[in-house]
Design a protein around this nucleic acid. Sequence first.
DNA 1: TTTGTATGCGTGTACTTGCTTGCATACAAT
DNA 2: ATTGTATGCAAGCAAGTACACGCATACAAA
Lengths: 192, 192
Amino acid sequence: MLDDTSQKIVDAAMALIRDKGYVATTTKEIARLAGVNECTLFRKFENKKDIVLQGVNQAKWRANVTPDIFGSVTWDLQTDLEMFMRSYMDRMTPDFVNLSIGLRAPQLYEDTKDFIMKVPQAFLSEFKQYLEAMYEKGKIVQGDFEALAMAFFSATFGYVFLKASFNDELTKVDKESYIANNVELFIKRLVC
Amino acid sequence: MLDDTSQKIVDAAMALIRDKGYVATTTKEIARLAGVNECTLFRKFENKKDIVLQGVNQAKWRANVTPDIFGSVTWDLQTDLEMFMRSYMDRMTPDFVNLSIGLRAPQLYEDTKDFIMKVPQAFLSEFKQYLEAMYEKGKIVQGDFEALAMAFFSATFGYVFLKASFNDELTKVDKESYIANNVELFIKRLVC
DNA sequence: TTTGTATGCGTGTACTTGCTTGCATACAAT
DNA sequence: ATTGTATGCAAGCAAGTACACGCATACAAA
């Protein structure tokens, strides 16, 4: 656990990285936003990169997209598919999308890539397991569940990313009708 | 048209931005990579930002995703859907994905956002028109074509982006089987 | 032969970068 | 009363930043 001052520094750093990216975020500005003197950063942390590494390891700075989404399934296809997509969309807010783009600096990416990849990886494998279980139960037909999981996740992620990037300027299709249309798509494929 | 020297400068700048982002790209390094003296940049261009603005306006530094993809339709649903998705995937290479992320700097984004948005916008509206035309021809059933276009594009974009970001570490699902599964998804929805 | 144009080279400027140091002060634990 | 800990403040450092200037050289057009 970090003390208050350190936490304020981490929070300031992450917020700035989300807004302008890692390289453009200066230690001076982190200090100003945290309300501490610049030298305090270097008393609490080894260097600028260290601050960020602490940040990405905090739940607070992670979209709360955890496998527990897949723990509360009802085994009703429509209900579950809607819930999966809605859960991801509600938790992966534009702020988190922008943060993970802000973390894409060559100086950091080696250290943050695996972390950033965890969420999609978990979603994909849990979703694939769900499809396999549904098949075992005889509720859906056979298919390439790996590819279908990728299709479902890409559709979810793509929408979230595009909305975060272009807001409503790209499309006026709202979340709920997007979900409804997508779920219908997969149901038609999985039960016909 | 730019002279050879200016073009080399633009090319160097865009390549560096693709690899490390706008802020991390220095004029010194642009000059080095272009094989010219640093002061030549400022004789040819007003400033660093000006170099990039020239770049984004060149076809060379745009993914060649143009509406002409939608000009060569066969009006066979499967053939066309596969062609749309494959065309986007083939042209929107990881290099272009990374470039458009590298261009996401607050100092530039106001000037480049509209440009970056053009490709998705064109794809979406052309695809929606295609669906409407297919409906007129009685080849597909009714639906929310705006939402379905967004679903199709998000699925396409999501895959391209995720592959560019994580390569094969996230999924081993290859392009062709991804396309096949997605197209099947939409066909089931559009002809049932 | 003269002139203009394009470039390299070296140096420089004003400023910012991440990071450090020395010293003072407040406060809490002992 | 003493000691330790956390912080602020002012100054500074070496390196890097975008960008500028003066001068030399090559080459081509006039």
